[in-house]
Design a protein around this nucleic acid. Structure first.
Lengths: 254, 254
DNA sequence: GGACTTGAGTGGTTTAGACCATTGCGATTA
DNA sequence: TAATCGCAATGGTCTAAACCACTCAAGTCC
């Protein structure tokens, strides 16, 4: 066939190379979404593909982005539904429980596992212990109104909290620390970044692997500045956002 | 190829872990990445596909995730390269400029446009003015070491800062506010969430549309509690993370 | 009635192949 | 020499088709 003839194919005369089809489709679907109440269902992928005259792959690309943005929820075997809004989590030294309650949500938290292991040098430095010392590792699943929201992995220095593993259950960790060890939290360093869900996380959160996540690492200290815990939490990026209140030092610049 | 591996769990009803090919490939590529220095190049998509015995689509899915995580950089027409690490941005009432400098980065900031428009009711409430009042809208592109990092859109109440639009340039906004209006920042409410890049944002940031972003909204107040600005910033999720220092109220709970 | 089976419909994964858009470099040309 | 052109390689988009895994409800069996 002739190769470089711009005027040959009829349908092939793609006009604007600037906007991909899946993006245009995404906007049309977003429009459609405005008239669907949260939880309402959308047509199937195959139906959308034929309705909009594109391939199913293209439909899936558009749906994938809308899902990542939290505007859609997809359930394997069941269908595609309009998403709910994002919850907000206050970025402060308060507890998950208290935080959710203040938003009128019913928070629950279940202990996935509790293990004791040896600290590697990096973790030891973070927790103020020696490399090889025992570390208690807690993994919890956080829920709001029954819906899985985050996976939280805490690590605490056992030398500082001897016997802590025996007190731990589904109850409040901070409460245990206060009652048995007299520990009060003073401050924390928290970092926030994006991440993608691993298959294991996705399974726990009812997510897809590769979904957008907010990865939150917290390094907590007591009122005397001694390290208390090192926490890595993974939140669903489509369901969560964080709020922080900042107070001024005195910096004036750009 | 043998497809049905009889060794897998079958009659149990509960089946095996089932890892998609693109995920397995992703891990193998991640391994490969550990021996490639930042900026180093990887084989092309087609080469990877044949080398690992999968389709190019599957390769692209794996590469897409690694890219979203900031571990890869892809340049159309040129190739795929190992990514650099993430920068950290302090979550405080300091300035971008000062912040980057403290990390040994060379910060620059260019004004994309400055417009005056009327406030809608929502924005008016945020800025403490009346609906329809003039609002100055500034869009800036933030760079670190010349690399585009974020797009920042600020909105300020013109009734409170008459003539502000004449002072604005590439220079420090907070400096102008202080010198001409005696305004010092007191506190701010900041929310952080995930987002996907729009084509326009992607073009400015040298990103792909649909890339992972950190969306940061800041509502700033002066020392007397009056609203000063409303800012929406979009940061590259593959290049940035945020750090906050939290101080304790006295909450002890889960 | 309750438990089980079955099948249609849904989203999830993968393939092979086509074509487009951008890049960079070597060869050609002014 | 300097600019331009051509082209091959790269990533980006899209298609059509097949098959898998999950869900749910209708139908069946005990």
């Amino acid at each position: 066939m002739g190769e470089n003839l711009p005027g040959d194919a009829v349908e092939n005369g793609k006009k604007s190379p600037r906007t991909p089809k899946h993006w245009e489709l995404k906007e049309r679907l977003a429009e459609l979404l405005r008239v669907v109440s949260p939880g309402g269902s959308l047509p199937g992928e195959r139906a959308l593909a034929s309705e909009f005259g594109v391939s199913r792959t293209t439909v899936r690309k558009a749906l994938a982005e809308l899902t990542a943005e939290g505007r859609l929820t997809r359930v394997h075997g069941s269908g595609t539904f309009a998403g709910e809004g994002k919850l907000t989590q206050r970025l402060q030294l308060s507890s998950y429980t208290e935080d959710m309650r203040s938003h009128g949500r019913r928070p629950t938290s279940s202990l996935l596992d509790a293990r004791i292991g040896a600290a590697d040098p990096e973790l030891a430095a973070l927790l103020g212990i020696r490399s090889g010392d025992d570390v208690l590792r807690l993994r919890r699943l956080r829920r709001a109104d029954g819906e899985p929201m985050a996976i939280e992995t805490s690590r605490l220095p056992l030398p500082r909290f001897p016997g802590l593993d025996r007190y731990v259950g589904d109850s409040s960790l901070y409460g245990v620390l206060y009652e048995h060890y007299g520990v009060e939290l003073g401050h924390a360093e928290e970092t926030i970044e994006t991440a993608l869900a691993t298959p294991a996380e996705a399974a726990l959160l009812g997510n897809e692997a590769g979904a957008l996540m907010l990865l939150l690492s917290r390094h907590s200290f007591d009122t005397e500045g001694r390290p208390v815990e090192w926490v890595r939490s993974v939140y669903r990026g489509d369901r969560y956002k964080f709020v922080a209140t900042l107070v001024s030092p005195q910096s004036l610049d750009t």
